[in-house]
Design a protein around this nucleic acid. Structure first.
Length: 448
RNA sequence: CGGGGCAUAGCUCAGCCUGGUAGAGCACCUGCUUUGGGAGCAGGGGGCCGGGGGUUCGAAUCCCUCUGCCCCGACCA
């Protein structure tokens, strides 16, 4: 992509509406614009990141054996009356009527809808187990949206729903999502920690919130420091096998959010020098709820013994549109964003310091073609802005690598590579630079 | 929903108290100069001062009202 033909409205100053780093940076880097309170337009640069994040979520869901479908954003009230949630859900559910005066709602979640779909299609124990998921926009009319897309009213969410014959089988489905989540977040460069969460009326230990540590997190969290360096399950993990060996290392140490925190246990189970007390952002939540919806909504299948049984279910959410902000919270500096390669909107920022200069133009066109040819995504700054401004913009939008080309360097047959994260700058011949960048980008695309 | 605040150019803000007909910096356009970490000079474009009503000879400014947005709290993927 050529910057001269792109749509990247960067801001030099911080809009007064923004409070936290990720919100400020997303506005400044031309990733988002607010449409109304808690509702955002994703500008081209932000949209590319959102797509990357969504892609990783999808890959790991698929890898775990979950099956993608797509449910609508609009639902009818009637369905929610079946589960009893239409009246139970508060004013954060957006309700309205269509032209026929039918009561409708913009879905805040999809348990009812998926249960309706599943009960109409699954009749036998042979149709189980299944995990179905979709990635769709949701709306929750939060009293007070804030922090940009971190806590918007409209948000993109991956939600999966599992269907099993027994609680034991459901536990395995739960574990599949547990492992998928660990991999998903690690691939984005995030250190997520599963923390014990409220299980509601079901009880047991089948609910975890996946938290990343960030100073601007909305809740206080407590955990064992070793969890931060626990190994991620490998890409070739067999999801059909017993997954507890992959999960045990993550559940053996203390980890809880403030509402579940037990100071006494924390002190007893975690050595003083291993106690982590920090702010955290919730990026995922997995939850087993048994027959909460299948029972009232009549989602039953016939077992091998001929008896009808209500299916055992769980739901598993990931706040997709919140993740770009969460990643920025975890990865930025004073100059701007520092994208991990797997979610970077472009992998290389190619800076032509002097467009119009024949040598610089020719060199940039060649480098651009060769990098793109090697499958590396490039944003070529071919604008007339001055060098200082170009550097500042590149640092702000946070592309992992900058390839800087100017007449001076070219006289000596050199271009410069800057690593955005370390700030390290090295020179190389154009040929060597391409080779190194292609190698680095490919190596860093896979973080887990 | 309670409490507080804000609304003037694309962004950050001044002007309002004490009414007199629109400002600055950055951004943008033109020219010259400049060109390796947000340059300089000169010229220029852009705002029914959030909407409506009122007071007044006259309202960005005073009064009433509506709307939107932000912050603190309770709530929250």
């Amino acid at each position: 992509m050529r910057l001269s033909q792109y749509f990247l409205p960067v801001l030099r100053e911080v809009p007064s509406e923004a409070e936290i780093a990720s919100h400020k940076l997303m506005l400044r880097a031309g990733m988002i614009r607010q449409a109304s309170a808690g509702i955002y337009t994703w500008l081209p640069l932000g949209f590319r990141v959102l797509k990357k994040v969504e892609g990783i979520v999808r890959e790991e869901q698929d890898r775990s054996g979950a099956i993608e479908l797509l449910m609508p954003t609009l639902q009818q009230a009637e369905l929610w009356r079946e589960s009893g949630r239409y009246d139970a859900y508060g004013p954060e559910m957006l309700r309205f009527k269509d032209r026929h005066e039918r009561e409708m709602l913009y879905g805040p979640t999809n348990e009812e809808l998926i249960t309706q779909v599943f009960r109409g299609a699954a009749k036998s124990y042979r149709d189980l187990p299944r995990i179905l998921y979709h990635i769709q926009w949701k709306f929750r009319d939060e009293i007070r949206p804030r922090f940009g897309v971190m806590r918007g009213r409209e948000f993109l969410m991956k939600d999966a729903y599992s269907f099993d014959m027994s609680v034991e089988a459901a536990r395995h489905s739960y574990n599949r999502m547990f492992v998928a989540y660990l991999r998903t977040f690690a691939r984005m460069g995030l250190k997520s920690i599963p923390m014990v969460a409220e299980t509601g009326p079901i009880g047991g230990d089948l609910s975890h919130e996946f938290i990343i540590l960030a100073d601007t997190g909305e809740s206080q969290v407590f955990c064992h420091a070793d969890l931060l360096d626990t190994p991620i399950p490998p890409a070739d993990v067999d999801f059909g096998s017993d997954l507890t060996p992959h999960i045990a290392p993550w559940t053996r140490h203390y980890a809880a959010t403030d509402d579940k925190h037990d100071e006494g246990r924390f002190a007893a189970e975690v050595p003083q020098n291993k106690r982590v007390s920090a702010r955290g952002v919730e990026i995922g939540h997995i939850f087993f709820f048994g027959t909460k919806y299948s029972e009232p909504m009549g989602c039953r299948v016939q077992g091998p013994d001929g008896n009808m049984v209500s299916v055992q279910s769980g739901s598993y959410g990931i706040g997709v549109s919140r993740l770009p902000a969460a990643i920025i919270e975890a990865s930025h500096d004073d100059a701007g964003i520092v994208w991990p390669v797997p979610v970077a909107p472009f992998e290389v920022g190619l800076v032509n310091l002097k467009p119009g200069d024949k040598a610089a133009d020719r060199a940039c066109e060649g480098l651009y073609a060769r990098l793109e040819g090697a499958g590396v995504s490039v944003l070529l700054d071919d604008t007339q802005e001055r060098p200082g401004g170009k550097f500042a913009t590149m640092d702000l939008i946070g592309l992992p690598f900058q390839l800087i080309v100017g007449p001076k360097g070219l006289k000596g047959g050199e271009v410069e590579i800057k690593d955005r994260k370390s700030g390290a700058r090295t020179t190389a011949s154009p040929e060597a630079a391409v080779k190194r960048l292609v190698g680095e980008v490919r190596a860093q695309r896979i973080l887990a």
